[in-house]
Amino acid sequence: MDIYLLEAIINGILLGGVLALLALGLNLIFGVVDVVWICYADIVMCGMYAIYFLYAQYGVPLPLACAIAISGLAGLGVLVHVLIIAPVLRSPPLNQLLATGGLLFFLQSFATLLFGTDFRNIGVRLPVLEVATMYLSFARLIAFAISLVGAVALYFFLKRTYLGTAIRAIAQDREIVGLMGIDDRRIYLAVSAIGGALAGLAACLLALQYDVHPFIGNTFGPVIFMICVLGGLGNMIGGFIASFVISQIIAIGGYYGSTELSYVFAFTFFIVLMLIRPRGLFAP
């Protein structure tokens, strides 16, 4: 096999890890709160700026900067829920999409206002590994590994704790959880915080690989929705697998064509697949 193709495939797998993390967060929120956060990738953008300023500007140690970013975004997730989602919880889905879409617009413009449109890099230079004449980015390897750890941690949280079990329960029967002594509003807050924290973790990993600018969310946002829909909205395992399918299409498409073309392939694949299996890849 062509060594460059292999390199592209491996890079695709590595990219899939971070996408999977974001897809988990978005799916978690959708499955529980039943609202699609169109602005999810822009929340990640906020986290990337936080890390950039904390680490590159104010010299906060990187791990601490990441911890602050993760908890900050958890707080932002709660804020988004309280200020924007809660008021439209009983509105038609369209209005919910638009409310978070308006937030997307706000976040991108506000970031432009505060930071300008410059591309900023946190300036951490991680080595590039050479394995059998293939070049693999160390930053991507780390991102992949940490994404997997995050996904596994989330799995155990959902599987082993009362709160996690309640989160899965509410996604199955929204109305009845009150009878179990579960306050759905508190679960929504918890899920929004977890979704925010996952976005924060993704922000840490992406900041190592990409420059941050106000519109970076546009690069990832549509891809993440696509992944979630392919896997079946709310289906976390489906989304996890779909992340790797899509990241492979992007990686191999990029190998044969340009970056944009690879995304065109991915979106076209998505549209075609949706028309064949409208409820996602893994729907029964």
Partner: peptide, 25 residues
């Protein structure tokens, strides 16, 4: 405690997880 009409179990949770939810308070 209320056993609702049509049972309304959480179908994708195991029996024991359903019981765990019952003991949420």
């Amino acid at each position: 405690a209320h056993v609702p009409e049509n049972r309304r179990l959480f179908p994708a949770l195991s029996v024991e997880e359903n019981l765990r939810i019952g003991a949420f308070i």
